[in-house]
Nucleic acid binder design. Structure first.
Lengths: 295, 295
DNA sequence: CTAATAGTGTCTTTAAGACATTATGAA
DNA sequence: TTCATAATGTCTTAAAGACACTATTAG
């Protein structure tokens, strides 16, 4: 088994010793992160619960290309680590955030997505409860800021001509930072015929987001919306001890709609273990605190 | 806007003109495909419907490394195309298959996954109804063969010590080719603590599958199982005109279990439009033929 | 007491699971 | 006529949607 020889008469050991990389053009592989958190707005009324908002972390580009535009935090993959490890490392370096949930999103590979050279982006979703965050930007970023996320599906158009079915869905993204509001538009096209199938995003208006990051962000929100209904992913956006109402708020900001309390609890309370702690000092009936149920 | 200058006083145009790539090590990016089809077994009894099997296409490695082992078909991404286009191109070149459903699966980036050098694999799932297939291997493959797929989840073990929750699930893969049976074992580990979350596959026994392809294949089957229940992905494994029983068989081989007819039809017939065609010459009552409903 | 949320009960509607029954065509 | 599948009906069980009602706290 060890002594198999290839067409040139080489064993595997000999082949590897003589192997030289670098005769082909290779891409750079960037790792970009869509870091979401659920942040509470300031509260005005001592009785009322604070509202939550979905936030995403963007960094201001400090160099070309897209100088001055807002970008997802990220960096380049290195040969000693997986892309996931690279994401964790960059997260730590660029923002100081450590030890949070990471999930690979998609690899974007449009050849012209970076004007410098051939750069693929292996993108990740990162989720953190806002108590873990003390963002201190360093390195490549002039500025890092949490933007609130408003996401809307605003139109769908289907056609079916000559056996080619096409559906185009438009999405609007409104990101509100401290002093700036970014508005991006992205569309998603599904095209099918008996000669294949195609599913692609395209940017209608980047809204001052760098590269194809409006697309990556759209993709991330759609993923989050999809997975929140059938996984425990939402628990990553809630502190260690949380109330079911807080969990419901997280579902609401991800799905972009209000949910009804009783059925929400019936459906999702299986994710949580009751503890004997309760909230207090809230001007209304205290609430039982739960924690993640390990499953 | 056009005349922003960076810290070195360069405009974007000047920066791009002076930009030189190649000062960092870059990975090669392979595109590997898990090509599934639903194939009918030979029929013995003229009255009975043929049974279906899930098959995957593997090619025998004609060179080092893993000479003689079986591998997923694939190739290297090129700078003029997206990875999806690369997948479609390789599919055509290596197997002659054209115009079928492609979906990005995952990017595998374990630094040592290829003994030659740093190679990431951007993997794709391809689905084709068996009527579209006339596989003629070329190029890099001594042989290409359809292997039947049997996939079992065979054990799950959970622990929760010192605030670190861990769940390990074992999977067995049995791939039966013309003269060979490959048996691989893969495990999936989910590990979580307040200091982060990790989700990784590892190969226990590669079963003579090259590289980390046992892992990629496992990942592909899990994806397929997950998506079949809430998308129309199964329609890609059925011919243009199909009976609801054929569609049910596709669900059964993907999920690895029998389904009950009436509830299956209630749940999934919304995917299909009835036509006025029927099957015939089958030794029993003819069946209405359906086609994909465009949605 | 009041204003707010917590937590639960219940009625309705919808979907899933499990079978059973009738329909139909080729040999 | 027979065998095997097609197609649908129905009973049961479980879950989702909608809303109402009671409980409990800080001020």
């Amino acid at each position: 088994m060890k002594e198999l020889r290839d067409r040139n008469g080489l064993t595997e050991r000999e082949y590897l010793a003589s192997y030289r990389s670098g005769d082909y053009v290779k891409p750079s592989v960037a790792v970009d992160m869509v870091i979401f958190t659920a942040m509470e707005k300031d509260n005005q009324n001592y009785r009322k619960l604070p509202e939550k908002e979905l936030k995403v972390l963007l960094v201001k580009r400090g160099g070309h290309p897209y100088l001055g535009a807002w970008a997802l935090p990220g960096g380049f993959a290195q040969p000693t680590e997986t892309t996931e490890q690279a994401a964790a490392r960059e997260l730590k370096e660029e923002t100081g955030i450590d030890g949070i949930y990471l999930e690979q999103l998609y690899t974007f590979s449009e050849p012209m997505r970076d004007p410098r050279t051939w750069v693929m982006s292996c993108s990740y979703i990162a989720l953190a409860d806002s108590s873990k965050l003390n963002v201190n930007p360093g390195d490549d970023a002039d500025d890092a800021q949490w933007f609130s996320v408003e996401f809307k599906e605003n139109s769908t158009r289907s056609s079916n001509i000559n056996g080619v079915f096409e559906r185009v869905t438009g999405y609007t993204l409104v990101l509100e930072g401290k002093n700036e509001t970014l508005r991006a538009k992205v569309s998603r096209t599904v095209r099918r015929s008996d000669k294949g199938s195609e599913n692609s995003f395209s940017i209608i208006d980047s809204g001052n987001l760098a590269f194809d990051h409006a697309m990556i962000l759209t993709c991330a929100i759609l993923r989050l919306r999809g997975k929140v209904e059938y996984t425990d992913i939402a628990l990553n956006l809630v502190p260690e001890f949380f109330t079911l109402t807080q969990l419901q708020q997280v579902y609401e900001i991800i799905l972009g709609k209000k949910l009804i309390k009783a059925p929400f609890r019936r459906k999702y309370s299986y994710l949580a273990d009751p503890t004997d702690k309760t909230t207090k000092d809230e001007g209304h009936r205290p609430s039982k605190l739960f924690r993640r149920k390990w499953m």
